[in-house]
Computed example of a mutant assay.
Amino acid sequence: MECPRLLPSTHLALLIFLIPLTLAADLFFDFRCISQPGNYTPNSPYQANLNSIFSQLISPNTDFNYGFYNLSAGENPDQVYSTALCRGDRTQDVCMSCLNETIARLKQNCPMNKEAIGWHENCTVRYANRNMFGEMEYTPQSPKPSTGENASNPDQFNQALDQLLSNLSATVVTFASLQLVTYN
């Protein structure tokens, strides 16, 4: 018995219904709007400086610099600091596209916040009204639960992980020893 075929209009209706659902469910994007420093006012010098940084980040004229960006604009108290980082295995075009999308989503989700961060699958964008360059920061963080499957053999996985971390530790110790030798 032959299966009935769906009419082309039914296919079109399914596509129209499914496309917005897949675009809206971006599992790789997350953001934090930091409220502690407060908000800026519309059309303020802070907003102009922030927009200047955003323009520089997505400009094809900005040096790609291996996908790392460290920019500031303006003078205190309206100075804006920004960092952006793209995955190292992505092209400049993919990086620029990701930065553009992340900036748009930060503008949408964190309007007027003086500090925010957006994480995407291919890049991260952060801006603040304070100098954060060269500072180790532990917040804000964005833990994501794993959507993948568990290891099929947890003992083998843990053994491989232990070996990897041991090798990494040995490499760090060796590198640190070499640094001490070169400075002495």
Rank of each mutant, 00 (worst) to 15 (best):
L12C: 12
P42E: 06
N129S: 01
V80E: 07
L21V: 03
S35W: 12
S166T: 07
Y46F: 15
L57V: 07
W119Q: 06
F133K: 01
T147S: 09
I16W: 09
N39I: 08
G74E: 08
N109K: 07
L85G: 10
F175G: 03
P37F: 09
A73Y: 10
Y183L: 10
D93Y: 09
M96L: 03
L6V: 04
L27N: 05
L15H: 10
T22G: 08
P154E: 09
K107Q: 09
A170S: 01
Y46P: 02
A160H: 08
R130F: 15
M96I: 14
I117H: 06
L106D: 06
R105G: 05
P111W: 11
D78S: 06
D155W: 13
N61E: 15
Y66G: 06
F157E: 03
E115L: 00
N184Y: 08
L106C: 15
N109R: 14
F17G: 06
S55G: 00
Y66I: 06
D89W: 11
L50T: 01
Q79C: 06
Q141R: 12
P45H: 10
L71F: 05
V94L: 11
A151G: 00
P37D: 02
D93E: 14
S55V: 01
I19H: 00
Q56I: 13
P154L: 04
L50M: 13
K144P: 09
P42D: 00
T171Y: 10
F54K: 11
G134V: 01
F64A: 09
N43A: 06
P154V: 01
Q163K: 02
Y46M: 08
P45Y: 03
Y66Q: 02
V181P: 03
G38H: 14
N158A: 00
F31R: 02
W119N: 11
A128Q: 07
W119G: 05
S146H: 09
A25N: 14
L180E: 04
A160W: 09
L7Y: 07
G74K: 15
L164E: 10
N100R: 14
S152T: 11
I34R: 10
T22Q: 14
A25F: 15
Y183N: 04
S59P: 03
A24D: 12
N122M: 15
R87A: 07
C123W: 12
N49G: 07
